[in-house]
Amino acid sequence: MTGSPPAIEAVDVSRTYQLDGVSVEALRGVSLTVRPGDYVALVGPSGSGKSTLMHLLGGLDRPTGGRLVIGGRDVNALSPPEMATLRNETIGFVFQAFHLLPRTSAVENVALPLVYRGVSARQRRERAAAMLGRVGLGHRLDHRPNQMSGGEQQRVAIARALVTEPTVLLADEPTGNLDSVTGAAVLELLERLNAESGVALVMVTHDQEVAARAQRRITMRDGVVVADSAAHDRPLPVDHGRPETLVPAPSAEPRSVSGSGPGHPSGGSGGAAGATGRLPREPGPSHAGADTREPGRGEPEDGAT
């Protein structure tokens, strides 16, 4: 494993926002390496910096400190258009809220990243249709998002993320807007694609049981990584399928993490907890239920809920 070059490498990355003149430290020195084929779960309470980290790993944002290398390119050296191209070529995004274009067919939604790659219309359709086939929606090519169920919409979004054959798939609460049965199916799909194509899967989740299925689990709190189970179960790229705990999927309770979220910062990093400056909003979102909420806004790093 250590032999292949990292897909993403973050070294002591920090991200500070200026909000109304107040500095908010969302990330305070995170080091992390994502290798091709990895399956990483990123967990932590609201405001721990998960989403900020995801945005950085996906090249949507730049660190204010440290070094971030995506696909072999140092992000700090790239212009906005170069960042866009980098995202297009190396990253696939899956969002909690799907983010499909309305009034646009499934196949066109999937083909969208190829538009910005200059692929011809016919090739786009071919590749998008093939990708939809791989996610089990070969029969829904010309359906629009409002004609599809949530699970189907998320499958379309997954197909869109993978149609460019990226090296990393970043999924931000991909099952958060789905019921547990559908969510489990989507999760299985992501895992299968990860196993089949070797795309690294980095997933933000609140669900401990979901997180437990990952090869590697990174826990964040107050802008730092407090635990990284990188070492142990790395060697089985194909067989990380279905731990017994997940089979009775409907009973999986996503609230276990979020409920305890705000209470936790008392731990080892307690001194830093207040420094992140996330004051009034913290308790609100964190126990509203991880599976129904849209990403918040306004605060830089609470998107992951």
Binding site: G58, P81, A84, R87, F93, L101, Y116, R117
Partner: peptide, 16 residues
């Protein structure tokens, strides 16, 4: 705005 964000995420440059 969301559409713009999504397009940018999948690789649209500011000029696009």
């Amino acid at each position: 705005t969301r559409e713009i964000g999504l397009r940018k995420a999948v690789g649209a440059r500011p000029r696009d």
